[in-house]
């Protein structure tokens, strides 16, 4: 039966004379896998409900996230801790779907030329990040990370922030009108706080309107909300995943 189909001058031979039929069959072939893999995920909204503790980004963090994307940090740093003992030891609790529910675009990454950053928030003082971006080798000798000194000199561009927050709200982030409309002012207020803390830590003054402050705000909040509970982590490190 199958042989009748594929033999020389068999049935397949006829389809080869019908481009339209051939194209339709090809489309059907690629749609089967697509539908099976996506339909359940979109229908049940699995993993799309954020944990109660997860807040969407503040306006300043949105600006910082844009800088993270602009500089292509995700090319070398993942933000996705896998449920292996060695990763829990090195980076902290594994990343849960609910933690990433507000992430658009997702920044899980595919390569760790540098370490994972999913839980880098709070790990270092603000000033460490400032110095690290200015010259990575000043804080991490032997680092191969590029320097980003312009982040300390370029002024934050907050003109588009309201528009970005509005777009983010369209794709499902629960921002209020107040947050959207006053995005720039809210961002400036948070930046002042962070800049003051940087000065307290012995860092340079007048960073409040510099790009670095937005990036620090974003980095310092990574992984600080909605992590898996200790109990879940314990379960995963006991039973989940191959431990080498």
């Amino acid at each position: 039966m199958f042989n009748r189909f594929i033999k020389a001058n068999g049935r397949h031979r006829r389809i080869e004379g019908w481009p339209l039929v051939f194209t339709v069959l090809t489309v059907l072939a690629i749609l089967v896998g697509t539908v099976v893999e996506f339909a359940p995920l979109f229908l049940v909204d699995q993993g799309m409900a954020p944990n109660p503790g997860v807040e969407p980004w503040t306006p300043l963090e949105v600006a910082g996230r844009e800088l993270y994307i602009r500089e292509g940090c995700n090319n070398c740093h993942s933000q996705m801790i896998r449920p292996f003992r060695q990763e829990l030891e090195r980076y902290g609790p594994f990343t849960t779907p609910a933690e990433t529910a507000y992430e658009t675009p997702f920044l899980w990454g595919s390569k760790r030329t540098g370490p994972d950053l999913a839980r880098v928030g709070g790990k270092y003082p603000h000033l460490w990040h400032v110095r690290h971006m200015e010259n990575p080798r000043s804080t991490s000798p032997n680092s191969i990370m590029p320097p980003y000194p312009w982040l300390l000199t370029r002024t934050m561009d907050l003109d588009g922030l309201s528009g970005q927050m509005r777009a983010l709200r369209t794709v499902g982030l629960p921002y209020t009108d107040e947050q959207v409309d006053n995005a720039a002012a809210l961002a400036r207020a948070q930046a002042e706080t962070i800049a003051a803390e940087i000065v307290e830590q012995g860092g340079p003054d007048r960073l409040a309107d510099r790009e670095i402050t937005a990036l620090v705000a974003f980095l310092q909040r990574l992984g600080t909300m909605g992590a898996a509970s200790t109990a879940e982590v314990a379960t995963a490190s006991n039973s989940g995943g191959p431990t080498p």
């Binding site: 995920l41 699995q46 779907p97 529910a101 675009p105 997702f106 588009g160």
Partner: peptide, 28 residues
């Protein structure tokens, strides 16, 4: 399928997918 996005300006946009969905669409 993968480029569906809401623009916020001429040179910026956000995918209509989030988190796990965005990851699956991206690697599909």
């Amino acid at each position: 399928g993968n480029s569906m996005a809401i623009p916020s300006s001429f040179w910026n946009s956000y995918p209509i997918y989030r988190g796990v969905q965005d990851a699956l669409v991206q690697w599909w």
